[in-house]
């Protein structure tokens, strides 16, 4: 080989080495770009999935939080309305009590009422020996009303003469608005004909009707 042939061969080898290196480097760069994309994509996707579910939860919590808040307020409103219904019924009740107290002020008609209450109690108990408890201040009215009620000889269904004894030691509470309690067999059988007991009965028996009258109006609910 002459010199120029040698030089040419060396030159070929050098450029071969360079080319090899360039190819290798290119290969690394291409692969690096692929890896870059894959790595970035998977990091982004994983994080997005996590963020998405995090926010889905937060979004749902908005709804439920506000729903809970609203239903709490709704309940408060319902309670207010229920309370007002109770207030109104109580006012009615107190109104009737006031009216009954007034009625008691008219002695003559109150005495007639006592007489009817007594007679009804005697007939209800249907017993020969009965005892009457009243308000202390009503005592004299009750005495004459009892006489009247037994006038002409009131008899039990068994034909016995009814004898009534008025309790002069214990009385209805001072707050009582009137009427009488009649009992027999030493207080074992009781007919409570006080005005508050009668009011309670009238009130309870007519509660649906009262509710309907006071709260059932469709005008209210518009």
């Amino acid at each position: 080989m002459n010199d120029s042939q040698v030089r040419q061969q060396v030159q070929q080898m050098v450029s071969f080495i360079r080319q090899e290196a360039e190819e290798k480097a290119n290969e690394i760069r291409v692969k690096a770009e692929e890896e870059f994309n894959a790595r970035k994509l998977s990091a982004v996707e994983a994080a997005k999935t996590q963020i998405r579910s995090e926010y889905e939860k937060k979004f749902k919590q908005i709804e439920s939080k506000l729903k809970v808040a609203y239903s709490t307020q709704l309940n408060a409103s319902r309670l207010e309305i229920l309370k007002q219904r109770e207030d109104i019924l109580r006012e009615i009740y107190e109104g009737v009590e006031r009216e009954l107290s007034k009625a008691r002020g008219d002695k003559e008609s109150y005495k007639k009422l006592l007489e009817k209450l007594l007679k009804q109690s005697f007939l209800t108990l249907d017993d020969a020996d009965v005892s009457i408890t009243s308000n202390e201040e009503d005592l004299s009215l009750v005495e004459s009303a009892t006489k009247k009620a037994l006038e002409g000889g009131l008899k039990t269904s068994g034909g016995q003469q009814v004898k009534a004894e008025i309790d002069r030691e214990s009385f209805l509470p001072k707050t009582s608005i009137g009427g009488v309690i009649v009992s027999s067999h030493g207080g074992k059988i009781v007919c409570n004909n006080t005005l508050e007991a009668r009011l309670e009965t009238a009130y309870q028996q007519n509660l649906p009707q009262l509710r309907d009258l006071l709260f059932g109006d469709s005008e209210l609910w518009k």
């Binding site: 109104i88 005005l195 009238a202 007519n206 006071l214 709260f215």
Partner: peptide, 20 residues
């Protein structure tokens, strides 16, 4: 409700009073 009550109060009170 209050207005309805005010308009019916006397009627209801009388009704119960008479029952008693």
């Amino acid at each position: 409700m209050r207005k309805n009550f005010e308009s019916k109060k006397d009627e209801v009170v009388q009704f119960l009073k008479e029952l008693v």
